[in-house]
Simulated scan of single mutants.
Amino acid sequence: MVVPVADVYRALADPTRRLILDELLLRDGQTLFEICGRLTMRHGSTSTRQAVSQHLAVLEDAGLVRSHRDGRTKIHHLDTEPLRAIIERWPLHRTGE
């Protein structure tokens, strides 16, 4: 699935969504309950479970988070592949100057 780069930028524009990605980077494979707990304990977030769930949906639509079900539990994983288009557009090392 190819995600428009604009969707990735929109997903990254929100500070809460960036915190969610940070938490998934530190510990991949979390449930909504775990993510909410980490946001509260580590960052003092007051976001409701519903708000975090909506943020996760935006991140999934942008391809930055993927999830699967384990019984009744939904497990969320970080996927950095959509960031490749950004890195390829503005590489860290200049060539041909």
Rank of each mutant, 00 (worst) to 15 (best):
F33C: 06
A11Q: 06
S53I: 05
D61K: 14
L32R: 12
A57E: 13
P82N: 04
H77P: 00
T80H: 01
F33G: 14
I20T: 09
R94T: 13
L24E: 01
V3I: 15
L26H: 09
T16N: 01
L21F: 04
H93T: 15
T46N: 06
Q54S: 15
I87C: 05
V3R: 09
R89A: 14
E81K: 14
R18V: 06
D22T: 09
D7Q: 15
R89M: 09
P4R: 10
E88F: 09
H77D: 08
R84F: 04
L12D: 03
H93G: 03
R49A: 13
L24H: 07
S67Y: 02
M41P: 00
S53Q: 10
Y9L: 15
L25K: 07
L56V: 07
F33P: 00
T40F: 06
A57V: 11
T80F: 00
T73K: 13
H77F: 10
G71N: 05
E88G: 07
T95P: 03
R17D: 01
E34N: 08
A11M: 03
D70R: 10
V8C: 01
P82E: 08
I35T: 01
I75E: 02
V3T: 15
P4F: 05
T31K: 08
D7H: 06
L64S: 04
C36T: 12
E60C: 11
L25A: 15
G71V: 04
Q30D: 02
G44W: 02
E81V: 15
